[in-house]
Amino acid sequence: MASASLPVAGAQQLGSPKRQPGVSGTVKATLVPYGYLTPTMVLLVVLMVIPIVMVIGYSLMDNVIMKKNPQFVAFKHYSDILTSESFWNAVSNTLFFTGVSVIAHLIIGLAFAMMLNTGLLGNRTKAIFRTIYVLPWLFTVAIIAVLWRLLLEPNGVVNYVLMASGLAGTQVEWLSQPETALFAVTFINIWSGYPFYMTSLLAGLQGIPADYYEAAQVDGASPWQRFVSITLPQLKPIIISMALLDFIWTTQQFALIWMTTGGGPLGSTEMLSTFTYKLAFSKYQFGAASAAAVIVLVISMILAFFYVRAQKARD
């Protein structure tokens, strides 16, 4: 790395005689990287530093944006939110939604990846299946939401199949009754998210040296023993970092919930994201919404800390 900071001064003077005289080569050289980084730093300040300072400021005022002269209220919004039942309901829904999604993504992703990694089938067959399996990945969340709304309509095809096969007696309103809505949105999220795991785990599986398995076979290890003592430990770093990444993303999921249930019915699918959004853009309580947004930020940063630590351990 050091070589880059040692530009050949003479060559530079020869090559660019038009440069202003008086600025020494070394000063220029130390400024060069900042020149390249200026657009990035300007964008980071405008899009990240200022907004985060703003949202923290908003969260300490009584009602910003809506009021001309908002008053400072210190941590009132935080204590209001942390003692409100609807907030803790959103926390528990988010935990369920995220936890079940992450685990299911992992199981389905790993199962598909292992089937696609088999030596028993031809490469062409596997390529066809791999393409099919990636399908849910190609759709944006908005599309996934309307598609599943269509499928889960009371007189839709899912209910038809369930009733025709005798699994359900009557039409179930999957997304509009409190008992099933959270399961339904979680199910949809599982469908849309597993391909990311599958592709990464497949790459991981292909990276495990074949002689590990051969050696285990020579020792008479069963397929299950091989899975537990070779496959899982080898994939562990990938699994940990993907699960954490997925956890961060899924806790932030908004569009899927908003377009299927809007957080309802009766708050049964309210997530931290929809809770915050509603405070701001349905109730116009920007101060309280900002406090909720800061709480969400803190949670994400804690998760990100673990993610970065897992990444470092991996390197």
Binding site: M48, P51, I52, Y58, T251, Q252, A280, A293, V308
Partner: peptide
């Protein structure tokens, strides 16, 4: 420091940024 900032920016939830962005 800059590297750390760039990495951690990825974890900032969109919903957190939305409210100040609206004002901005």
């Amino acid at each position: 420091v800059l590297n750390m900032v760039i990495v951690s920016v990825q974890a900032v939830p969109p919903i957190t940024l939305l409210i100040p962005y609206f004002g901005l």
